[in-house]
Amino acid sequence: MRVSNHLIGLLNFITFLLSIPILGGGIWLSTRASTTDCLRFLQWPLIIIGATIMVLSLAGLAGACYRNTILMWLYLFFMFFVIVALLGFIIFAYAVTDKGSGRALLNRAYLDYYLEDYSGWLKDRVASDSYWAKISSCISDSKVCRKMGKTFNGIPETADKFYLRRLTPIQSGCCKPPNECGYVYQNETVWVSGGGLTSVNPDCNLWNNDQSQLCYSCDSCKAGVLASLKKSWRKVSVINIVILILLVLGYVVGIAAFRNNRRIDNDEPYGEARMTKAQPSWFQF
């Protein structure tokens, strides 16, 4: 039964090491003078997650290695809620990202994104004025649009080559006008009106060649962020499913370690206990 203690100790040592960069990343974000509102919004979840994993890992490590029954009980108690919370997050992530995708375009490798294709809690959250102010500021500060520029042998990219690029959802939704607006390509982030604007899409009037504005106020930009979040959350959910399986396995092993610690605390050798329980009453003197 000591194997269970060693195994739970090893698992918690690994999770303790993983918690260090998570916690350190949150603290680093909180101390940066130039951090944008978007990144500051992310710091507390990182700090809370990192600190929780670190404390639980230390409790599980100490409880297993030193056979401390109280620490192991606390570890199992709180780990149960962590497992439930992680399971709830996985279900929530799939529920809020079940709708919406980019629309294919004729003679274009990239997709266009429309806010009306999305619905639910995540759309309302991202599209709200308070949150969008932070998100759009983050996109602008990241200079994601400025980094789109490409040259070939010193010659700027032509429209035909640009149309064959597979843009990210944010690049497509925030750094260029929607295809239906009929704007003419000048470079990756400069488009001029073709003169035949017939679309009723309000984003067509919101597009601005000012590099600090572009389409950051467009619904297509919000839809691009939603598409990017959907892709990221689905990837994270796959990883979380793997982590959840490992946590459940560690929880089961932890229960075995907890029972082993209780036997040791009660001076009840496991083998003798089984033999005593297995003996028939007539065998006892």
Rank of each mutant, 00 (worst) to 15 (best):
G154T: 15
L122T: 11
W132T: 11
I135G: 09
W207Q: 04
V144F: 13
I170L: 05
I135W: 10
A227S: 11
Q213Y: 08
E180Y: 07
T158K: 01
S130P: 14
I170C: 06
L115N: 09
N187W: 00
S220Y: 02
R166D: 09
Y216L: 03
S128T: 07
N153T: 15
S220F: 02
G194S: 01
E188Q: 08
M148E: 13
D219M: 05
V236W: 00
N208W: 00
D160C: 03
Q171W: 01
P178F: 13
A127H: 10
G120Q: 09
P178G: 09
V190H: 03
A223F: 05
N201C: 03
T168H: 10
R165G: 11
C181L: 04
E188I: 08
L164F: 14
S136C: 03
V144R: 08
G154V: 10
K230P: 13
Y131N: 14
K161C: 05
D210E: 04
L197I: 12
S199I: 02
D210V: 06
R125W: 10
P156A: 05
N153A: 12
F152R: 13
K134M: 07
Y118V: 01
C204I: 06
I155A: 03
Q186C: 09
V238G: 05
C145G: 12
P178M: 09
K147T: 15
L229G: 15
L206W: 14
D141V: 11
V190Y: 01
N179H: 15
I239Q: 00
C175A: 01
K176Y: 11
A159D: 10
K231I: 13
E180S: 10
N240H: 13
V238N: 02
K161F: 00
G182Y: 07
Y118G: 04
A227Y: 03
A127R: 11
K123M: 15
G173I: 02
C174P: 03
G182L: 03
S140C: 07
T168S: 12
K123R: 14
S136I: 07
P178S: 10
Y118S: 04
S228R: 14
K222Y: 05
L197M: 09
T189R: 03
L206K: 12
P169A: 08
C204M: 04
V225R: 07
L197D: 07
S128Q: 07
E180M: 05
G194K: 00
A127N: 14
P202K: 01
L206R: 12
Q213T: 14
G224K: 05
S172A: 11
D124K: 06
P178D: 01
N187E: 05
T158L: 00
M148S: 10
A223Q: 10
C221H: 04
P178W: 11
V192C: 04
V190M: 02
N153R: 15
